[in-house]
Design a binder for these strands. Structure first.
Lengths: 188, 188
DNA sequence: GCCGGCGCTTGATGTGGATCAAGAACCTTC
DNA sequence: GAAGGTTCTTGATCCACATCAAGCGCCGGC
């Protein structure tokens, strides 16, 4: 359980008293490989920290799927925009491997924002990090070609190639599996 | 000046005492049409609210520019990731029309986060909104073709077409000016 | 008011990556 | 361990969009 506290304390310090308020709201949730954690069209009630496993976040679009992100140990997982706006999610989240998440419900988190100021700040810092990640990804999409994006990925997250299907990586890099396969052969 | 207070109070209420603390840190900055507000490589020290004018946010990439966003009346303006991380900006911001911004420096804003809890929350709410906007834009890029993205833009922001060059809109929609021109002729 | 330049349009041509297709190497399941 | 499905690879074809090119119109500066 202290994974949650450790993760939060990467951003803000919590007193034991504050932790005592925060802790009860988090609960573990387990998903077998392949299970859907959030389906398109459902409102996302959870915000989660990944204890183990890999999940993929993707958009469905007339029959096909486009991967927009992955989550794994120590990162957060969920569909933040649906969580915040309480509108049906346009993204789906699926367990790529057996996964354990620690999750908090929306009402509980927003309650904590009101009662524990450190958590309000934590929310801000998490969002800053997410936004920076988005900006970085946008820059990559704009300034790097397919091969450079691939090289970047294997440099930053070499383990991903072992963990998730190449077709998911391909769609994450915005290309077809065929193009990805040829790229790998070429780059060797 | 009350534009700033009104804008902040769209998210959180401020007592007069809090406003008295917050207000002195905001200052107006004027830019003539064409002026750079932030250059690539500079660290962004400001977070701004637009009082008037239109600005474009773009990435430079071997000689050409790709527009990634616009800001106008009532929206915020700046390069948030450089602002937060104090690293050189990979984006540039330029005044498309004569512009007046109300701006606060990073140190001042982070000071307010510590002294005025409502501002900490404001920071979180602003970021939530920004992140939702990013998610929406990402979905659009993935699920809509060029023509649908164009229709979406003229539906949501018809005034933009009058205000900014078509080549900027074209790059915002991820196409060349030629393709955009042909699209407009075709769509009528 | 004239000149120069940039932005927009329109046409001709080229190409990177998508699509279609088929076979091989896998996991998974019974 | 055989059967069936999925994923990956490799080849052939195709096409949307980029690129190249030329002409026009508008605006700003002197």
């Amino acid at each position: 359980m202290s994974l949650v506290r450790r993760t939060i304390e990467r951003y803000v310090k919590l007193t034991d008293a504050e932790w005592a308020v925060v802790a009860p709201h988090w609960q573990p949730r387990d998903f077998p490989k392949g299970a859907f954690i959030t389906r398109t069209g459902e409102v996302e009630p959870w915000f989660s920290i990944v204890e183990q496993g890999v999940q993929r976040l993707f958009v469905e679009h007339d029959g096909s799927e486009v991967c927009v992100g992955f989550a794994y140990d120590g990162s957060w997982s969920g569909v933040y925009d649906s969580f915040v706006t309480r509108t049906p999610s346009r993204f789906a989240v699926q367990a790529v491997t057996d996964s354990r998440l620690w999750s908090i419900r929306r009402e509980a988190l927003y309650g904590l924002y009101d009662t524990v100021p450190a958590m309000d700040r934590w929310g801000r810092l998490i969002l800053e990090e997410l936004l920076i990640g988005r900006a970085t990804r946008e820059i990559e999409q704009l300034t790097l070609d397919a091969e450079a994006r691939y090289r970047n990925l294997i440099r930053r997250s070499p383990h991903l190639l072992q963990l998730v299907a190449q077709k998911d990586i391909a769609s994450y890099l915005r290309m077809t599996p065929e193009t990805f396969s040829r790229l790998r052969a070429r780059v060797r």
